[in-house]
Design a protein around this nucleic acid. Structure first.
Length: 154
DNA sequence: GCCAACGTTGGC
DNA sequence: GCCAACGTTGGC
């Protein structure tokens, strides 16, 4: 079991999009950063993923989803209509990968970025490192557990 | 392979 | 909307 965090702008895709259709899977596509893509390729079915809301009123971790399908070629890279279209990607040599995710849990309150920054266990996590723009962040079990501790107190 | 220019991210 | 930090692009 591995643990991750994925960033999203909630007006694009939020924890509610998962919570409103808990039996459905949602394709997580559009990641266009090589380091983030490489993390996606390391995801396995069953891995837990924190959903992080960025660039919005309430920044922080909103809930948990899990991986239901491991990495496969992101179809949007071939779609000329998509904002994620990549003219350099071919079916033979795809550049970008997607995973499928399914709802697990929505936190009763967002765990704010301030609270995450205050967690000593997260001091080395790239989420809270200044200037980090990684949209897919690996979490150790200790880091994940420290976050969950906050939810039990809220 | 360098690096300036440019585009994007994301908190504030 | 601002802007710092970072990643990517492309000329040389």
């Amino acid at each position: 079991m591995q643990y991750w965090l994925m960033k999203t702008e909630p007006n694009e895709c939020s924890i509610d999009d998962f919570a409103n259709q808990p039996s459905e899977v949602i394709r997580w596509d559009g990641v266009r950063n090589y380091q983030a893509r490489n993390f996606i390729r390391n995801m396995h079915i069953g891995d837990e993923v924190f959903i992080y809301h960025s660039s919005c009123a309430h920044i922080g971790i909103a809930g948990i989803v899990r991986v239901t399908r491991s990495a496969y070629a992101d179809p949007s890279q071939f779609d000329t209509e998509s904002p994620y279209f990549d003219s350099k990607a071919t079916k033979e040599k795809p550049r970008w990968d997607a995973v499928d995710l399914q709802f697990v849990r929505k936190f009763s309150q967002i765990i704010s970025l301030d609270k995450l920054k205050a967690l000593p266990e997260l001091a080395d996590n790239s989420l809270v490192k200044k200037g980090s723009r990684l949209s897919v962040v690996p979490f150790s079990k200790a880091e994940r557990d420290a976050v969950l501790q906050l939810t039990s107190r809220q």
